[in-house]
Design a binder for these strands. Structure first.
Lengths: 133, 133
DNA sequence: ATATAACCAAGTAAGTTAGTAGGAGTTTAA
DNA sequence: TTAAACTCCTACTAACTTACTTGGTTATAT
């Protein structure tokens, strides 16, 4: 039960963008050097962040990435979901309609996983990017 | 970010043992048929449950498994940890001493993962096996 | 004795992770 | 107008993990 390095690196990178208060974009080269993460790998991460409207990109020389919203308006759950995909602690939790996976009589254990999932989301949503600068 | 099927099946199996109030052990054949889980796979799961002192085994005819403690005395976190190994939402969270993984200045993001981990454990510990029968 | 159980050691197909590699398109500054 | 510094895009891959299966051995109640 682990998150991937994409999320680990992704949040660190987002904090860097949040710290760059000026409107100057931050390039992946900079982040790569600062955090010792492969630049090519960061590209994958930022592709997802951009697809989920968490960052904006500026091409060309002195280009890079900026946050799409203010650090106060971005919470950690959004970042996690952008990089991990929809959160589901079990396969059966991601297919509510799919009644085959769980027993007909309603699997008793599901309530545990449901509550756990709710709690994880709540905890991650509580943290705004602004809390981490 | 998912738990494995070992935990999914394992908790279901533990609930079955909890329901078998009589001192009669429950065999893997029974559980396998009831939950439609491969018996051979259940063996792996029960090997871990036994190694973590959550169940006791009785060999031979009309043998099987019984809970090592009462359902009130077993919580879901114990079962999860037995089957998933020590909980760590990131690799760096499982090696507190290992300072290489995180930046020297103390990674700001770590507090998020620390709080998340704490919350997951708290939620899972809250549920006793007795709550699920 | 035999059936029924736990126990044990390997192997394995499929999927995921954590990257690399190589290039194409954009924009700015000299 | 050319070079450099960027993003962007597709494809590939080694290593690892997951979710099993297979083929046994050992213990015990009847």
């Amino acid at each position: 039960m682990m998150f991937t390095t994409k999320t680990e690196y992704g949040l660190k990178a987002m904090v860097i963008l949040a710290k760059a208060t000026s409107k100057e974009p931050v390039s992946l080269t900079q982040i790569s050097k600062q955090e010792h993460i492969s630049q090519a790998y960061l590209e994958h991460i930022f592709a997802k962040l951009k697809a989920n409207d968490l960052v904006k990109s500026i091409k060309g020389v002195s280009g890079g990435y900026v946050l799409a919203r203010t650090p106060k308006q971005i919470n950690v759950f959004e970042i996690v979901e952008a990089l991990e995909g929809p959160l589901a602690v079990f396969y059966c939790m991601s297919h509510e309609n799919d009644s085959v996976a769980c027993n007909a009589k309603g699997c008793l254990t599901k309530q545990v996983w449901y509550e756990l999932q709710k709690n994880i989301i709540k905890t991650l949503r509580k943290f705004k990017l602004a809390d981490l600068v």
